[in-house]
Amino acid sequence: MTSRLRRRPLGWPRRLARLVLIVLALVFLLLFLVLPLTTVFIEAFRQGVGAFVEAIRQPEALSAMRLTLLVATIAVPLNVVFGVAAAWAMTRFQFRGKAFLGALIDLPFSVSPVISGLIYVLMFGAQGWFGPWLERHDIKIIFAVPGLVLATVFITLPFVARELIPLMESQGSEEEEAARVLGASGWQMFFRVTLPNIRWALLYGVLLCNARAMGEFGAVSVVSGHIRGLTTTMPLEVEMRYNEYDYVGAFAVASLLALLALLTLGIKTLMEWRYGDELATHAPGGH
């Protein structure tokens, strides 16, 4: 009965409705997503390739790129180690307060980026909890690189853990138990069984974590102090140039970030097509 219904050809009102819906959705996607993305590149090259190259070769732009790379290189591995540890504890053992731990891991996604920066200013800023002590020992955290790293770590904390937890939950621990029973040491089991099983999901988490770490603006802006050449990451450099009416310069740096976003989307989509079964079916995370 159902198969007969399914084979029934669609009448023209249904086909028209279908066409209208498709066109509406595509027009929205083009106007709302594709157009802003295109604008970034068009504005970046508005005054030609020469001006673009000039804009991204300025020392402030180069130091912003170096700083963005540095911050991501510290923050991402920290959250990878945390993500693996948290996922191992959450999926392989039963303990009290597990749900609370899960909620705590997700928390940074529902906190405003500005508040994520603010909390570290309240801890380490001049009038913060540890401010006077830090000042006496001449340690700078706020308006310096450590503050940028802390804010980035907070913002990107959930990404790896959130990819790994549902996957490891669904994989179960039989293989790991077998390895142990056959005499593998804890680390042998981890590197030979656990890690190969989760590698694609781990890479996927790293990809998203890195994209957010390099692109974060709000949290980093609060702790940065906007000291040119010292504490301005690429997104902050974009802001400063834009506010100085250097539009070509702002969009030139922005186009590099947009390129990173496109690259991330491309790799992410490829991974979903190729290794879909080895990635957890995940709810969308805030990014």
Binding site: L29, P36, L37, F217, A250, L257, A258, A261
Partner: peptide
């Protein structure tokens, strides 16, 4: 369809400052 499907995630991937100046210019 698959390209459009992948594009849906663009606002996640695009840094907010970049989105901000692009929307303003538009």
């Amino acid at each position: 369809r698959r390209v459009f499907d992948a594009l849906v995630d663009l606002p996640f991937a695009l840094p907010t400052a970049v989105a901000g100046i692009a929307l303003t210019t538009l």
